[in-house]
């Protein structure tokens, strides 16, 4: 972790916090309004890679824990970690890590929308949701299968978000590779 890495980690955490205060935005063509903050999780992984992405999401959670209203809707505080949906939050660093790992491992493929969407889906859905469901099932005391059923409702929306995040990640990586003289895939 050099200076630049540390700053990127911190600024992406600040970015994710700022997304909480974004007005609802829509995905063109599909037209569905979405909350922007969860995009930050996948983007952190896609743009910063596994370690730095996970760390920056960890920083956001630390800010939540110390009682700052940094989540969408101005939520925050320790109570958030006690609620039944806390697993989805705890899943942030893990999701960013998984997405980041895939972008790092398969960076050659990451410029195709299909692949980068897949990477975002793995982190944002296949990692995030199991953690969330497990937590929901334990803290809510409901059987796992029922909890899974409950989370499935959110999957279609999250797939859309993952594709949007993937598209953004591709454009960002292209722009940075071209104009800032970085190695095409290393920021």
């Amino acid at each position: 972790m050099n200076t630049r890495d540390t700053v990127l980690v911190a600024l992406f955490a600040a970015f994710t916090v700022a997304l909480a205060f974004f007005p609802p935005i829509t995905i063109p063509l599909v037209g569905v309004p979405i909350t922007a903050q969860s995009l930050g999780v996948m983007l952190a992984g896609a743009v910063l890679g596994a370690n730095r992405g996970a760390l920056s999401m960890g920083l956001v959670l630390a800010l939540v824990a110390v009682g700052l209203p940094v989540l969408a809707g101005g939520r925050g505080g320790l109570g958030v970690f006690m609620g039944p949906t806390a697993g989805y939050l705890v899943g942030w660093p893990l999701a960013a890590y998984a997405t980041g790992l895939l972008f790092e491992r398969f960076s050659g493929k990451a410029n195709y929308l299909v692949f980068s969407s897949l990477f975002c889906i793995v982190g944002g859905i296949f990692v995030m949701h199991p953690v969330g469901v497990l937590w929901l099932s334990i803290s809510g005391g409901i059987p796992l299968d029922k909890a899974v059923l409950g989370t499935l409702v959110f999957v279609p929306g999250d797939v859309l978000k993952a594709v949007a995040a993937a598209y953004i990640a591709i454009q960002v990586r292209k722009a940075l590779g071209a104009t800032m003289g970085y190695g095409a895939n290393r920021i």
Partner: peptide
Amino acid sequence: GTNIFALIIPFVLRIVKMAEQVSQAID
């Protein structure tokens, strides 16, 4: 004003660019 790509792509780019300058300032 509500287009996700028009908003987030330049936003992320500015963040990364700013990170460059902030880290130079810290150094």
